[in-house]
Nucleic acid binder design. Structure first.
Length: 342
DNA sequence: GAGGGTCAAGTCCGT
DNA sequence: ACGGACTTGACCCTC
């Protein structure tokens, strides 16, 4: 995992209209996950619920494998993808977690996940996970912490089945979370020993827009690498931090020789209607003209601002760039073409 | 097919 | 207090 990459997150789109959801006949459904809800499962007979979980498990593992194969057809510098967290719905939900412990089910998913990991390594694809907003390891509520550890270990189970986690961020793999909880960095340290070895090998922490910024994530650099999110940093501080800044050097160091990943998103084009796309959005100016910080957080469809693209390009030498945008691979491919003049 | 209601879970900001 | 944003909107049901 040494050369530079630009990747995307969680879903494969064939057309921009699919940003608003897929239609029943869309081919891309074969590359994307299905899901279900606890409420729906609860309304069914147990056999029906179990059958649905089995069907979704088969669909999602197949879809993830197909997604990885598809990413493998891209330029080597585009072979990076974040995998969706909802591979196995309700895995950590107390009523249904038993299902995934059934021997037949466990054996099937272990085999399916192994194939996904082997294929990703064979095709030289950098993969990762990003647990959602409910994974709050540093919460001040011990029940939430316990649930969050379970949620994190679910992602670790997936990674382990896929063949990752035996050493520090092997193959560049990461399971990235926010600090989120009110206990902050100390809360992360407090639960460190409750995480499995593989979890400790794979966790990364991302700077946030509101509570915990780069200084906070870097305070954990002795145990956890920082995923630098330039949009979060901009929303929090208004700064386009320089790639040569000492903090960025410390981010790189926190990865201990593994090539770092950064996140790239930009304010939604629907919020900044009419904004000059060759000029970087300026926080002070935007706030003075009545924009709200919270609205500026929202992600764009595409990486529409060439000036910010050029700014991010300066990081590419040292960072793989994970694009977070509504248009998914369509946006990351367009950015890739822009930065490589392809 | 379109449209509206529903969905396991945390935290913050703005009103 | 509550909706919306983040995260990753999708699915069920009715018409």
């Amino acid at each position: 995992m040494t050369h530079k990459r630009i990747g995307f997150c969680c879903k494969w789109l064939d057309f921009p209209r699919q940003m608003d959801g897929f239609k029943p006949k869309d081919e891309a459904l074969k590359l994307n996950n299905r899901t279900t809800t606890v409420a729906w499962l609860n309304r069914q007979e147990r056999a029906v619920a179990e059958q649905r979980l089995w069907d979704i498990m088969e669909h999602n593992t197949n879809a993830t494998l197909e997604l990885v194969k598809r990413v493998g057809t891209l330029d080597p510098r585009q072979r990076m993808v974040r995998l969706s967290s909802d591979m196995f719905p309700v895995y950590t939900e107390p009523t249904y977690s038993y299902y995934y412990q059934l021997p037949d089910v466990k054996e099937a998913i272990a085999k399916k996940c192994a194939a996904i990991g082997e294929t990703a390594r064979m095709l030289d694809i950098r993969v990762s996970f990003h647990p959602g907003q409910f994974c709050v390891l540093a919460s001040d509520n011990e029940t939430i912490v316990a649930n969050s550890i379970r949620e994190f270990e679910y992602h670790t189970d997936l990674a382990r089945w896929m063949g990752y986690g035996n050493s520090f961020h092997d193959h560049g793999f990461k399971i990235n979370v926010h600090i989120s909880g009110r206990k902050g960095p100390d809360g992360i340290r407090a639960i460190w020993n409750q995480l499995s070895t593989e979890a400790r090998n794979l966790v990364t922490i991302e700077n946030e827009e509101n509570s915990y910024g780069l200084d906070d994530t870097l305070s954990l650099a002795d145990i956890i690498p920082t995923v630098f999110d330039c949009h979060h940093h901009w929303v929090k501080t208004g700064e386009y931090i320089e790639p040569t800044d000492d903090k960025i050097k410390r981010v790189i160091d926190s990865w201990r020789g593994v090539r770092p990943t950064m996140h790239y998103s930009v304010s939604s084009e629907s919020i900044l209607v009419g904004h000059d796309n060759s000029v970087r959005p300026a926080m002070t100016t935007l706030l003075e003209s009545g924009h709200k910080k919270q609205k500026l957080r929202a992600h764009s469809d595409f990486m529409w601002n060439t000036a910010v693209n050029q700014y991010v390009a300066e990081f590419w030498e040292n960072f793989d760039i994970q694009v977070e945008s509504k248009a998914k691979n369509l946006a990351s491919t367009k950015l890739f073409q822009e930065l490589t003049n392809a």
